[in-house]
Design a protein around this nucleic acid. Structure first.
Length: 887
DNA sequence: CACGTCACG
DNA sequence: ACGTACGTGACGTGG
């Protein structure tokens, strides 16, 4: 069975270039696009096992598309030299792979590919097209799959006509109509101005083709009708430009694309030139210098069930182990069931697997428990934080954390959302792991497999961890994150687990009383709303609510969502003057949110036996370095509005007579900004401990303190928020409900005064462009894949992220430091007080009466001295009988 | 399971 | 011309 793989060389090289961090070999040649291209190619070779391969390139600058439309692909930025220098080498490399490549003057890569897929359809041969360009979707058919790169080039989404229909509701042939209507800025294809993807799809769903749309302009209305009529020619031409030409004269070149594998020595020579050492190893190619034979061999190890060892043998094995994997089933570690443990011995020659049943057998359990609880016996694993909790609930206290590959992976790339062990190994060219889904199944079909199969799977994971450790340690070192890892994140994981195990007491009665009060209010609003609407409907359904508000009551449409009318609070506030019902809906929403999420939601999380709630802090989710909280989220308990704030009355000390003490950083993000920007005026404001929003108002509006009214302060506050988020006039105008012009004037005035801040914002973006990442004060790193994107939106987003992440991330560093120090202090001083919660800039404790006075000074002292900045840090303390009173 | 909405910093 | 403020998680609806 033939299978053709047709690669759009230019498109993939471009994608790879912008997706990969800068990379050069010692000769100074940029290699990142080549590297990205190669890893993608290797992955696809493995996944697709094609019998024929072709890489097509664009030839020259002028194609037949320029005949009649000279602006085609105009306005496109010149290819950066860092990329163009890579093309000749890339072509050389493809040759070393033994893969055919074509380019033909006057035609683009997609025309060559289009012609070949046509041939594939005719010959009934299976084909896969690899590109980053959505235009290719027009080539999809039953036999032709289009693989589009996603997230850089490491992964692809595969499309056949079915998937295209699902995603866009159109056929592959209609892709060109879509482009004809909406155009394509990157190719300078005009389309019809004002018609974006949504409008274009709507028109196609109704009329089918560009021609039919143009023939039916009568059924359009208003501005849209005018625009479509005025740009008929543009639409027709755009469609033509977007159409891939499928009659390229290729003659019998087809016969040259058969693929029979690569010559190892040729490929190795190429990789050596490019200094792709990891790829040489991964493919087990002959090493440099022809010494030969040094290729890494496939890992071979023996899997031993724990019960086959005597107690002493087991203890001796554990003592010299190099890695451990805990398999805990379930997302919530407080409820997860530990089904097995795999431990890799020295050199990875032997891996011992302990199943849950064996763990219940004292002969096995005792040596294992002694090892797990021995703080001097190092444990190197994956997600030891989760393991620690799962173990705690079966009465085992994990000690001796020495390395965690999940935590390391997070520091090495916090933007990567897939941090499963299986996703980690290919990053280091280690042998692949079976995906959990194939071993266990998913959803309702989840099933723990037979002991043998399970043991094999867990052993493979323990071995993967063992091999990842030195590689990640080297990467942490290279990235300057060694200290961040060992002195902050790893100790913090243990502190967090302690807080989570401790839990916070929540008074169910308080919540239940609040719940019945809410229920009454909800019932009242419900009947009022029905009366005003003249009908009963589900108020909680945005769809039904939209129908009532905008169709039945004819209120003006302020904003639309992908699926219909928007009815969010922002819209409803604008609609308030039009109809009494609107206010009622806002109140109803407020109460039902409190009821379902906070009263009912929290009640479900209270442990029957202890009356406590145990959240789970996730340390490897937020790209900025912040924590997140789950099951339940205790970082979003209401506070801004009094009605919701009362929820906090239910959070109480777990021992009679104790007190809840809360301490929060004052303006930590703006203080961090003052430090990292070095802006003198901003620093001075904090050194003088001024009200920062009032001070900002004074400086921006050029008035004295007593001339600042509440409105000026409010606007200044919004500007300060904007600065922290990575300012844009659009965002500020939206927030303050002012025009973009006014917003942009505010921003300009702000930067006039705080010039150091302006310089910081400019510099950080420039630096991000240069390095591909930004860092916090403690060297936490965040890559910005889109910082060089040609797409304005993507690029702007990345630029704002570049401005925001060092600020938000450094603030996260600071409070994490404070948590580790605070935990030390509680221990060293032998205090009974307990740290319970972290809410980004706030720490919550429960404190026995005799320690209250001490804690009132100790907590802010530790927080304020967590890290020395050029401005003082400030923490405010409060306390009371519950979290509400601690304000 | 995606979406809209809304709670927090 | 483009058209979003930064970072999260939980709930209910409806396909």
């Amino acid at each position: 069975m033939e299978k053709w793989m047709l690669i759009d060389g230019n498109s993939i090289a471009y994608r790879a270039f912008f997706a990969m961090p800068p990379l050069t070999n010692s000769a100074g040649l940029h290699t990142n696009a080549i590297y990205g291209f190669t890893t993608m190619l290797l992955k696809l070779l493995e996944e697709e096992k094609p019998t024929h391969i072709l890489v097509a390139f664009d030839a020259g600058k002028v194609t037949f598309r320029h005949e009649g439309y000279t602006e085609y692909k105009g306005g496109r930025e010149k290819t950066p030299s860092e990329l163009s220098e890579q093309f000749p080498v890339l072509k050389e490399l493809i040759q070393s792979f033994g893969i055919a490549q074509f380019e033909l003057p006057g035609y683009e890569a997609d025309d060559i590919i289009g012609t070949l897929t046509k041939l594939a359809d005719e010959k009934e041969v299976e084909a896969i097209v690899v590109s980053g360009d959505k235009d290719m979707l027009q080539l999809a058919s039953e036999r032709v799959t289009i693989a589009l790169t996603r997230k850089g080039v490491s992964e692809v989404d595969r499309y056949q006509p079915n998937e295209i229909m699902e995603k866009y509701g159109i056929t592959p042939q209609q892709i060109i109509d879509l482009k004809g209507l909406m155009g394509d800025t990157s190719d300078n294809i005009p389309g019809i101005p004002g018609v974006g993807e949504k409008t274009a799809l709507k028109m196609l769903h109704e009329f089918g083709t560009v021609e039919e749309v143009l023939a039916n302009t009568d059924s359009l209305k208003g501005k849209m009708k005018e625009k479509v009529e005025a740009h008929q020619e543009d639409a027709r031409m755009s469609k033509k430009l977007a159409t891939i030409y499928r009659e390229v004269p290729l003659e019998d070149k087809v016969n040259e694309i058969a693929y029979s594998g690569y010559d190892e020595s040729q490929l190795a020579a190429m990789f050596r030139k490019l200094e792709f050492k990891s790829l040489i190893e991964r493919l087990e190619l002959p090493e440099a210098g022809g010494v030969g034979g040094a290729a890494t061999e496939e890992a071979k190890y023996e899997v031993v069930p724990a019960r086959n060892l005597s107690g002493d043998e087991l203890a001796a094995f554990l003592a010299q182990s190099e890695s451990v994997y805990f398999e805990a089933i379930g997302e919530n570690p407080h409820q997860a069931k530990l089904i097995g443990i795999a431990v890799a011995g020295a050199g990875g020659e032997k891996i011992v697997v302990i199943t849950y049943d064996e763990l219940m057998d004292p002969a096995v359990a005792e040596p294992v428990r002694r090892w797990l609880e021995d703080g001097d016996a190092p444990k190197r694993g994956y997600d030891l934080h989760k393991a620690e909790l799962a173990l705690a609930w079966i009465g085992i206290s994990l000690k001796g954390t020495a390395f965690d590959v999940l935590l390391a992976a997070y520091l090495l790339d916090p933007t990567e959302s897939n941090q499963t062990l299986a996703s980690l190994v290919p990053r280091y060219q280690l042998p692949g792991l079976a995906p959990d889904e194939t071993v266990y199944g998913k959803g309702a079909k989840f099933l723990v497999p037979a002991a043998e199969i399970l043991a094999g799977h867990l052993a493979a994971k323990a071995e993967a961890i063992r091999r990842l450790i030195p590689l990640q340690q080297a990467d942490l070192e290279t990235g300057g994150m060694h200290k961040l890892y060992y002195e902050l994140e790893q100790p913090l994981a243990i502190v967090l687990a302690g807080m989570e195990k401790q839990g916070i007491k929540v008074n169910a009665h308080t919540l239940e009383d609040l719940g019945s009060e809410l229920a009454q209010g909800i019932a009242r609003y419900e009947s009022d709303i029905y009366a005003h609407a003249g009908m009963e409907f589900n108020i909680g359904s945005p769809k039904q609510l939209g129908d009532v508000l905008f169709d039945k009551l004819d209120l003006p449409v302020i904003k639309k969502t992908k699926t219909g009318y928007s009815t969010d609070a922002e819209v409803l506030e604008k609609l308030e003057p039009y109809h009494e019902i609107v206010k009622l809906i806002l109140h109803y929403r407020q109460l039902s949110k409190l009821q379902s999420t906070y009263v009912e939601g929290l009640l479900k999380e209270i442990r029957r036996d202890t009356g406590k709630i145990h959240t789970y802090y996730r340390q490897t989710i937020a790209a900025t370095g912040r924590l997140s909280s789950q099951f339940p989220n205790l970082q979003n308990i209401p506070i801004r509005l009094e009605e919701g704030r009362r929820i906090r009355k239910a959070f109480v000390p777990s021992e009679p007579g104790w007190t809840i003490l809360a301490a929060d950083y004052s303006q930590i993000e703006l203080r961090v900004l003052a430090h990292i920007s070095g802006d003198e005026r901003l620093k001075e404001a904090f050194i003088q401990d001024m009200d920062i929003h009032t001070k900002t108002a004074m400086d921006v509006f050029g008035v004295s303190a007593d001339q600042v009214d509440s409105n000026m302060r409010r606007q200044a506050k919004a500007v300060n928020f904007g600065i922290v988020y990575g300012i844009s006039d659009f965002g500020l105008s939206n927030n303050l409900n002012i025009s973009r012009k006014e917003a942009s004037q505010f921003i300009e005035q702000y930067f006039e005064v705080f010039q150091g801040v302006r310089a910081y914002m400019d510099n950080i973006v420039a630096q991000a462009r240069q390095d591909g990442y930004v860092t916090t004060l403690l060297e936490r790193r965040r890559y910005l894949a889109d910082i060089k994107a040609s797409n304005f939106n993507l690029r702007s987003f990345a630029e704002r992220t570049a401005m925001n992440t060092p600020i938000q991330g450094t603030a996260a560093d600071v409070i994490k430091l404070a948590m580790v120090r605070m935990d030390e202090q509680l221990r060293e001083r032998g205090l009974r007080s307990r740290m319970l919660l972290q809410v980004h800039d706030e720490l919550v404790f429960e404190v026995p009466p005799e320690e209250l006075e001490l804690m009132k000074t100790l907590v802010p002292e530790v927080m304020e001295n967590a890290l020395a900045l050029d401005v003082p840090l400030k923490a405010d303390v409060s306390f009371g009988d519950n979290w509400y009173e601690a304000k």
